[in-house]
Design a protein around this nucleic acid. Structure first.
Lengths: 231, 231
DNA sequence: TGGATCAAAGTGTGATCTCACTTCATGCTA
DNA sequence: TAGCATGAAGTGAGATCACACTTTGATCCA
């Protein structure tokens, strides 16, 4: 199963350009890990699946390339989902540690009770998905959980940069959750984060986020090694 | 004088797409502050000035929009150089404090003697430009000075994110350097940064960078206020 | 003089076409 | 059989065109 099978023809909403819809559609798919690292993305193929011409697809893909969500590959300049190197992975990890930790600190100062409820809901859904072993739902609610916390910081630019980092690691995460005990350890961090939010304890929230990112990065690194050996 | 007068027809280097050259050309122009905040960028006009068709220009501009270097404006969806809000400015400032401070810390661990020489050269050129009141040369060497330091961290992704932040504040900086004593205070920070590099003192380098960013952000905020009042 | 109207010019968007290039599989030759 | 040539299919890049829309400015009327 490749990423395309989850994508249908685009029903173009008016008042929004086709290019923008294609962009956000593919971006979300990448963050959610619908595409494997190394998977090739062809202009004409994408246009056919989405039911548009090649022009808006090109612009959307170019944007994703600019974001680091895609990379040009062989001499044919074909676009593919990047296969991260170990160095890039620690590069991204450290950026995430800085920015998501900072966002967590800001979030504590601004988060409302209703936002905490929404975050708790996402955490509960994540736990259910973890118990059921439903990777799709787990990844989706994991992303929502983190996104809701950072959104409470009210920093649009910061949020954009953080999303950009998730865009890069998204294709790997789907494989990393298969690592032994990944889900259990991850859920511990999430539970502690949720508790820190209730306690309005900024330092504790930051620490939980930092631990979550660090552990996930370790599993991602192991996943990467398997990939390099042709997994 | 608008940004176009500094741009000539593009002499297309082969082996590189027109789109990529237009992108990096305009990106550099934005970082260097050649375009004023609010200045409109038209597809056909840009294509005419650069001597290409509209297609590669569109992709380049779309990429810049994605980076936050341009924004869609009125109902006509025309692109223009963003006019930052005060909130966005502090948003960007705090990201810079986190990431550029972190990059400075990493740089100390890796920087070589020859790199320090290059950085010192940039600093010297900056001082000369400051004395002469040559804004163009000052901005150019300021950007090179910082870029050389961060490059020593050997973190490509981090470098890309930092560049993205400079891209957003670039159009403002040219106006901010006119603030009273901006150049003097800024050069003090740069001198301290250079000394910290020689001493291999990571904490001192980070502190100098942080102070530089904080002071610059204050002047940028004041510049912004003048702008909002129709300066 | 003030306001509405209408046409011209300018804008981005998207589809289509050509071109140069790469890739890959087939078949031929040595 | 091994290696090479060849051609078809697929790739992205860029130019051009038609379209819908907004902006602008001149003109005309009240």
């Amino acid at each position: 199963m490749d990423g395309w099978s989850r994508l249908g023809p685009l029903t173009l909403r008016e008042g929004e350009t086709a290019q923008a819809q294609i962009y956000s559609c593919l971006r979300e798919a990448l963050i959610s890990g619908y595409f494997r690292p190394g998977e090739e993305i062809s202009l004409r193929h994408t246009a056919k699946v989405l039911g548009t011409s090649v022009t808006p697809v090109r612009e959307a893909l170019r944007q994703l390339e600019s974001d680091g969500g895609l990379e040009v590959w062989g001499g044919n300049r074909v676009l593919r989902v990047p296969i991260l190197s170990e160095a890039e992975l620690t590069d991204i990890r450290d950026i995430r540690l800085n920015l998501e930790g900072f966002a967590a600190t800001l979030a504590i100062e601004n988060v409302t009770a209703s936002q905490i409820r929404l975050i708790a809901n996402a955490c509960a859904m994540m736990r259910r998905a973890s118990d059921e072993g439903n990777a799709d739902r787990y990844l989706e609610s994991n992303w929502r959980f983190h996104k809701l916390i950072y959104a409470a910081a009210h920093r649009p630019v910061l949020m954009g940069v953080i999303e950009g980092m998730w865009l890069r690691v998204g294709p790997l995460i789907r494989h990393a959750v298969k690592a032994p005990h990944h889900l259990n350890r991850s859920m511990e961090h999430h539970d502690r984060a949720e508790q820190a939010l209730r306690d309005r304890d900024g330092a504790a929230l930051r620490e939980a986020i930092v631990q979550d990112i660090s552990d996930a990065a370790a599993d991602l690194g192991a996943t990467l090694k398997r990939y390099e050996q042709g997994g």
